[in-house]
């Protein structure tokens, strides 16, 4: 019996430690999903059912939201432009940018987000699909239309700001994901492995993309077509948005009183199905980045200020 324990412990430590140093990101074949990731989708103003308990909530203005996550090629293009214009800089192997800071309330567990240069994205870290040679940014081939990841809230906000757009508020994100009824997922109330990139479908996605670790899928992958033998279902929202559940979490704009956390929505390829439900929230500090966190932007189509009547229960001090 002792031997069994020793062998099991050995395997655990061996694979755990080995994995840390042996996995590197490699080029993969490009997969065109047929979804144009440069498109925007109009979300009309009006009421929607918010959260687990379906609170009727109203958004006053129309807005447009990106049809898919911001992709690696879009972010690389932005980084090179921003570097040239001087809105970002490279310091300590990190892309950094200026942020004016948040109001600090010194509440329990609240961390001060002060004025200064904050991390947008690491330059040389495991899991990175974007490279930097000291002058320009480029990306690893095959990941062009995958969602950009390893980007902090600051990095996501900076991207949207750069083009005159902004991150969606949680309410805007939720309305866009849910449409006009009480569905649990963007496409309806049932979830299967063909609907989205999440924990239960990760092995099939890995196989279809020929990648040996769990990974993002190209944006719009789950669109009812068959890719490399993997038959997908149409995972669109009623208004035609892709990947509003699974693939990578999406940063949202709201800054709440008494906390520094920023919230993410949508779930990711590492999460179980319940995290993909429309109302599921995740959060982290604004400087946090990870392999399963990305974002998409919204833009106002009228000059009126975009606002909504209800929030997530916390007092919003900045909805961006």
């Amino acid at each position: 019996m002792k031997r069994v324990i020793i062998i099991i412990a050995f395997f655990l430590v061996f694979f755990g430690c080995k994995a840390k140093t042996s996995v590197t990101e490699k080029e993969i074949p490009f997969l065109d999903t047929g979804v144009n990731h440069h498109e925007w989708v109009l979300i009309k103003s009006g009421e929607f059912f918010k959260g687990l308990h379906d609170h009727e909530t109203r958004i006053k203005n129309d807005y447009e939201i990106m049809k898919t996550h911001v992709t690696n090629d879009q972010y690389v293009y932005y980084l090179n432009e921003a570097l040239e214009k001087g809105t970002i800089k490279i310091e300590d192997d990190m892309v950094k940018g200026f942020y004016p800071g948040d109001k600090f309330h010194e509440y329990k567990h609240e961390k001060q987000i002060g004025k200064g240069f904050w991390p947008h994205m690491p330059v040389h870290e495991l899991g990175q699909r974007i490279k930097f040679d000291g002058k320009i940014f480029s990306l690893i081939k095959g990941f062009e239309n995958h969602p950009v990841t390893m980007v902090s809230w600051f990095g996501a906000k900076a991207f949207c700001d750069f083009y005159g757009w902004r991150l969606p508020t949680e309410n805007e994100w939720e309305k866009a994901a849910r449409g006009y009824d009480k569905r649990a997922y963007p496409w309806g109330n049932d979830i299967s492995r063909g609907h989205a990139n999440y924990y239960s479908s990760r092995l099939k996605v890995m196989k279809a993309l020929n990648i040996h670790t769990y990974t993002t899928s190209p944006v719009g992958f789950f669109n009812g077509r068959t890719h490399n033998g993997l038959e997908t279902k149409n995972g669109k929202t009623p208004e035609g948005l892709h990947d509003m559940a699974g693939n990578v979490w999406q940063w949202t704009a709201d800054i709440y009183k008494d906390m520094h956390y920023r919230f993410m929505r949508g779930g990711s390829f590492t999460n179980y199905a319940y995290n993909l439900r429309i109302w599921a929230r995740n959060s982290a500090g604004p400087e946090f980045y990870d392999i399963n966190i990305g974002f998409r932007c919204v833009r106002d189509i009228e000059n009126e200020e975009v606002s909504d009547d209800s929030n997530s229960g916390e007092e919003i001090i900045d909805g961006n």
Binding site: A19, L126, T270, I291
Partner: peptide
């Protein structure tokens, strides 16, 4: 316990095997 605290030992990118084994 190891699964829940895996980020202490292994970067997220390389966690697939730890997740599978645990």
């Amino acid at each position: 316990t190891v699964f829940s605290m895996k980020r202490l030992f292994v970067e997220h990118y390389a966690q697939e095997k730890v997740v599978s084994w645990t």
